[in-house]
Design a protein around this nucleic acid. Sequence first.
DNA 1: CCTATACATTTGTATATACAACAATTGTAA
DNA 2: TTACAATTGTTGTATATACAAATGTATAGG
Lengths: 153, 153
Amino acid sequence: MTIEDQIQTAPLPLSRKLSINLLYTANWANDILAEALKPHDLSLQQFNVLRILRGQKGKPANLSTINDRMVTKMSNTTRLVDKLIKKEFVVREVCPSNRRKVEILITAKGLESLQKMDEAVATAEDKITAQLNSNELEHLNNLLNTLRTETNN
Amino acid sequence: MTIEDQIQTAPLPLSRKLSINLLYTANWANDILAEALKPHDLSLQQFNVLRILRGQKGKPANLSTINDRMVTKMSNTTRLVDKLIKKEFVVREVCPSNRRKVEILITAKGLESLQKMDEAVATAEDKITAQLNSNELEHLNNLLNTLRTETNN
DNA sequence: CCTATACATTTGTATATACAACAATTGTAA
DNA sequence: TTACAATTGTTGTATATACAAATGTATAGG
């Protein structure tokens, strides 16, 4: 279904059509991922933080590191981490070598829970991409990367 | 820049890479649009509601109509409209023929303000799509539409 | 040593949104 | 006509997020 049909609007200039389609489609994908995580009582953003911490392989991460690696920007990783602490999925300590920083570590419980969610999320990701073959997915990936290319002006 | 470089992660399966890239890129586009609207003190969602109401060409819209046409889903168009009323960009009345419904109309002030924002938003949309030519944009559009195609299973 | 500045994070305030509970109105059917 | 269900919106609670101000810590220059 075209995006014009989807949101019932008159024909749009291409740049507008693409902008709307991009946001609309991402929202659609977001819903599928959120749905997959719902039984685990974790938001997509909380899941992302956990996944980043697992990627650290035991090395603690400080807030700005997590922030840099988030898919969506956060002025507020502090409060996300607060919620993960309440669930006992991560621990937070003051960095001994530089007490301005904090060190955040995923716990055994966090790793365990993450493992249980992996399958659900992978299924959701497959669902999102199911309608395209590998070549098309690569192409789509490249087009998205190009879109974000910075101009030097 | 590839999405793996962007968020500093190990190589990912294609379905995950695309899912992340889609959310990341939409977020990037969202920021550009929000930035363009910032001088006008209007959020992207408020702008979208106004644009939908203008599309009604004088015909009032009720809440569920607006909801259907929103790019991002809303459990909460009520409160968005509240904010637009406070800015005197729209008015809300009870529908006389069916008093469960409400009728929402854009005001002259709303139309006027919208017109001023049009240029800023069009510029933002051009910026979002600047790195691709028409053919590529059409292709990207089609790939996004295909992605959202429902399966009948 | 003292102070200005930079750094890393936290907190307050506002917006957007999901979900569930609630309320009012209308339609239907015994 | 009364009971019940469906429709349409509103409201309460929780999460995510942007932005700005505040907090606490480190560092560099005088």
